[in-house]
Structure formats: structure tokens, C-alpha cells
């Protein structure tokens, strides 16, 4: 994902949050939201999300009204929340530091008792736990965390509705990894950590490190 983007969508606690960091053109924002919904079409099928607009910069009321009007046309959006932050430091901080702890129990969990083979796809609005491998050519889209008790070699899109989600695998080698809308592509000179690896989003980037036990989960 473009790190210099002036606005972005971040999933958080079951809602989608549109964070506008700098004033941008209305059509750019709408286009971005449109592409987001289109690329996750199957995921949003039949469900609706709460949409939060969170400006970090000065926006005129008329601009926000226009934005809301345009966004209302997306059938995936159930209701709006508008967080008018007075730009005190507390408010800004709140947006950037998405929870340190992952909140597994906020969402339902789906268990899959087989391997995902090339061409197979899983879409689920909550957490996904796979007791098997995720082979190259397969794809998982999850609202929450993805845990693979096997090797992970496919494409993972986790945390669509919650950027505090994690991706864990016993053998960690995904082709592409996405948490809460942030991308990480696998590189040829991948790090040596392949066993028991966890990935999470923090400090504006995806962190990939070896699993150090439950401490991470509860943020001790």
C-alpha cells in the first residue's frame, strides 16, 4: 500500500474506518473506497459494515456532507459514524495506536479441518483457523485473525474489519500478506524465520517475527 496516501481504510473492531490525513479530492476518496469494496466483493456479500469517517485534518462541513452523500450509495455500508476529533494530541494518538492486544473474541471463528489447495478460497467475516496447509494459489480473506497450523504459502488478507488482527503460521511463507489493508509482499530474500511466525500491524507497518508465546497476545 502506498505509504504516502493521504487517506486510507482501516478495519477496527468490526467497523471500517476511513482515515483522512490530508485534504484530498472527493473523487479520489470515493474511487478508493469503491475499489476496496470491489476487490473484496465476496467478503462483503450480504453483510454491512459501520463506516467511520475520521479526519485528521481540517475539513469543511460541506465536504464531509458531500462525502457522506456519495458514500451512502455503497450498499455495503450500513450506517455512518463521524468522529469529529478536535485535533488534540490525544485524538491523533488514538487513531495511530490501534490496540496492542488482539481481540479474538470480538468475532466468530471458523475452523477448517483440511488443507486449502490451489484455487480454493475462504471468505469469512471473523477469525479463521486452519488445521492444515494453505497451498500456493489459494486465498484467505478474513475479517479477523488467521491462524494456520501448517504451512502458509498462499495469499492472506486478514483483519479486514480489525487491523489489530494477527496472522500466525507454523511454516510462514505467504505469497502476499495483508493486515487491515496494509500489504506485505514476500521477497526472495525472505528472512530466515520460517517456523512459528506471527505477523501483526503496528506502527504503520506489518511486523513479522517469531512467536514468543502468549505474552504477545495479552500485551504483557
Amino acid at each position: 500500500m502506498d505509504k504516502n496516501r493521504r487517506f486510507r481504510l482501516v478495519g477496527s473492531k468490526g467497523a471500517l474506518r476511513l482515515v483522512i490525513e490530508q485534504r484530498s479530492s472527493l473523487s479520489d476518496i470515493i474511487n478508493y473506497v469503491k475499489i476496496f469494496f470491489e476487490s473484496n466483493k465476496r467478503f462483503f456479500e450480504g453483510t454491512k459494515v459501520v463506516f467511520e469517517i475520521q479526519p485528521l485534518c481540517d475539513l469543511e462541513t460541506s465536504f464531509i456532507e458531500q462525502l457522506k452523500l456519495k458514500l451512502a450509495k455503497f450498499e455495503e455500508i450500513e450506517s455512518f459514524k463521524f468522529e469529529d476529533l478536535d485535533l488534540t494530541d490525544k485524538g491523533v494518538k488514538n487513531v495511530e495506536s490501534i490496540d496492542d492486544k488482539i481481540c479474538f473474541d470480538k468475532m466468530p471463528t471458523k475452523y477448517i479441518y483440511k488443507s486449502l489447495r490451489s484455487g480454493q478460497k475462504v471468505d469469512f467475516k471473523g477469525n479463521v483457523i486452519i488445521l492444515g496447509d494453505v497451498n500456493p494459489g489459494s486465498k484467505i480473506s478474513a475479517g479477523g485473525s488467521v491462524i494456520v497450523l501448517g504451512s502458509l504459502k498462499g495469499v492472506v488478507q486478514a483483519g479486514i474489519l480489525d487491523a489489530s488482527s494477527i496472522v500466525f503460521a507454523l511454516d510462514f511463507d505467504p505469497v502476499q500478506l495483508q493486515i487491515g489493508g496494509f500489504f506485505e509482499l514476500s521477497t526472495d530474500d525472505s528472512k530466515d524465520l520460517n517456523d512459528n511466525v506471527v505477523a501483526y500491524y503496528k506502527d504503520n507497518k506489518i511486523n513479522i517475527e517469531s512467536w514468543k508465546g502468549r505474552k504477545f497476545l495479552i500485551g504483557e
Binding site: 486449502l116 489447495r117 490451489s118 484455487g119 480454493q120 497451498n135 500456493p136 494459489g137
Partner: peptide, 12 residues
């Protein structure tokens, strides 16, 4: 092998 994996998925 990749194609075989896809085919096995379809057979299943």
C-alpha cells in the same frame, strides 16, 4: 505440482 494441487481440490 501447482496444477495438480488445483486439480485435487476440484476432485475433492
Amino acid at each position: 505440482v501447482r496444477d495438480a494441487d488445483r486439480v485435487i481440490g476440484l476432485l475433492e
